Amino acid sequence: MADKQSRELKEGNESNVGNISIKVDVDCSDALTGLKAIQREAKKATQTLRELEAERDRQDEEFGKLFDAHQNLAQQHDDLTVKPLSNATTEELTEELAKREGVRKAEIKPDIRGELLPEGISGYTTFIHGPARVLVVTD
């Protein structure tokens, strides 16, 4: 009779079949353990992302403060502009060079005739009519 019921189930004829009870015993403990481990790692990843976002926000705020401080300093020192040497006047260049170590500066007034005797070079004399600035670079 079991063969007949089995055959009827396979053929789709359920009218002659009584109540059937099926008990399945499946061990899911390994799967649950794995899912719990995945959940723990997902929570850790979420926490790490929150910490990274907080650090990014802190750094953005710090950068904003530094940028604002830079802007304030730039506004306070508008007169301090950097320009290429090619745009500097000859007067500006000679004044800057005269401030350096190893450079001597001599000024010859208008309508004055000056004689320049470079050190260490005998028999060499240059006459200069003012106005003039002479820089002697020794280094």
Rank of each mutant, 00 (worst) to 15 (best):
E14R: 11
N16W: 11
G18W: 00
I20Y: 06
S21I: 14
S21L: 15
V24L: 15
D27F: 07
D27T: 02
A31T: 12
L32D: 03
T33I: 07
G34K: 10
G34I: 02
L35E: 01
K36W: 01
Q39L: 07
K43D: 05
T46G: 11
Q47Y: 09
Q47A: 15
L49K: 04
A54Y: 05
R56E: 13
R56A: 09
E61K: 10
F63M: 15
K65F: 09
D68Q: 13
D68T: 12
A69F: 00
Q71W: 04
N72V: 14
N72K: 15
A74Q: 06
Q76C: 04
D79S: 01
L80D: 08
T81P: 10
V82W: 15
V82L: 14
K83P: 04
P84V: 02
P84D: 07
P84E: 08
L85Q: 09
S86L: 09
T90P: 08
L93K: 08
L93Y: 03
E96L: 09
R100I: 09
R100H: 09
A106T: 10
E107D: 01
P110N: 00
I112C: 03
G114Y: 02
E115M: 11
L116P: 00
L117F: 12
L117G: 06
I121V: 13
S122Q: 11
G123E: 02
H129Q: 14
G130A: 00
A132F: 05
R133T: 15
R133K: 11
R133Y: 14
R133E: 14
L135Q: 03
T138D: 03
